[in-house]
Simulated assay, not measured.
Amino acid sequence: MKVTVFYSSDATKSAAFDVQPSDTVKSVKQKVIALHSPPDWANTALLAEKDSTEYFDNRKRLAQCGVVDGAVLKFTYARNLTLMEKVELNVQGTDTGNFQLPPMSISTLPPKVAAY
């Protein structure tokens, strides 16, 4: 089957790929990466139906994601933020969603005094 993947912020850049329903999402991403190298800041890639924000899981097969012949997909590079990067952005006022704070080595609480 054929799918069209838009892979750039330029809305005209796309490529058609011959794929099988049994192909994994990851294998399709690898085909796009071979065509369009990642920028230095990217550490992950996302694939979804065009006009959707529900990104496919790498391990799933295209058929499991509902991808059919003639499907139009979008591929984008992204940066999967580390916990510390999320903390830094939140301190600067950028909301990055809910996350657990890592154990901190700095505390505003006074140290416990051992009882002798």
Rank of each mutant, 00 (worst) to 15 (best):
V72T: 14
P102A: 14
F6P: 01
A16T: 13
V72N: 07
T44C: 15
H36L: 08
N98R: 10
Q100E: 14
P102C: 14
N58R: 14
H36G: 07
R59S: 15
E85I: 11
E54Q: 12
Q30I: 06
A42P: 02
D95A: 07
K86I: 15
V32H: 02
T82P: 04
E54N: 12
L101T: 05
E54I: 12
K74Q: 04
E88M: 08
L81G: 02
E88N: 11
T44V: 13
Q20G: 04
T76W: 02
V25W: 00
T94V: 14
Q30H: 15
S14M: 08
Y116V: 06
L89N: 10
Y55M: 11
N80P: 05
A71R: 02
F56A: 07
D69F: 00
V113P: 04
K2H: 12
M1I: 12
F75P: 02
E49F: 15
Q20D: 09
Y7F: 12
L46R: 09
S37V: 04
T96Q: 11
G93V: 00
A48M: 03
L101Q: 11
D18A: 14
S27W: 04
N98V: 09
M1D: 00
A34W: 06
V68C: 12
P102F: 11
T53I: 10
V19R: 01
Q100F: 15
L35Q: 15
A45T: 05
V113G: 11
G93A: 03
K86N: 06
P111K: 08
I33F: 10
D18Y: 10
Q92G: 09
Q20F: 00
D95L: 04
D10M: 01
T53N: 09
Y7R: 03
T82M: 08
K112Q: 09
V87R: 01
T53A: 14
A63I: 06
I33Q: 05
M104D: 05
V68D: 04
P111Y: 10
K112E: 08
T94N: 09
C65I: 04
L62F: 10
D40T: 08
K2W: 10
V72C: 10
S27T: 12
P39I: 01
P103F: 00
L46C: 07
G93E: 00
I33C: 05
D10H: 05
V25T: 03
T108W: 07
K26I: 07
S22T: 15
P103I: 11
Q92E: 07
Q92S: 15
S27I: 13
L46Q: 07
L83G: 09
L81R: 03
V91C: 03
T12M: 13
T53V: 10
V32S: 11
E54H: 13
A34K: 04
K31I: 00
V113S: 13
V87L: 12
R59G: 10
L46W: 09
E54C: 13
L47S: 06
A48Q: 01
S105L: 13
D51W: 11
F75I: 02
K112V: 14
G97S: 07
P21Y: 01
V67K: 02
D18V: 00
L109P: 00
Q64G: 03
S9T: 08
T12S: 13
A115W: 00
T4H: 05
V19G: 01
T82D: 07
Q92W: 08
D10Y: 05
N80D: 13
D23Y: 13
S14V: 06
Q20N: 13
V87W: 02
K60T: 12
F17Q: 03
A11L: 01
V28C: 15
F99M: 03
T108K: 00
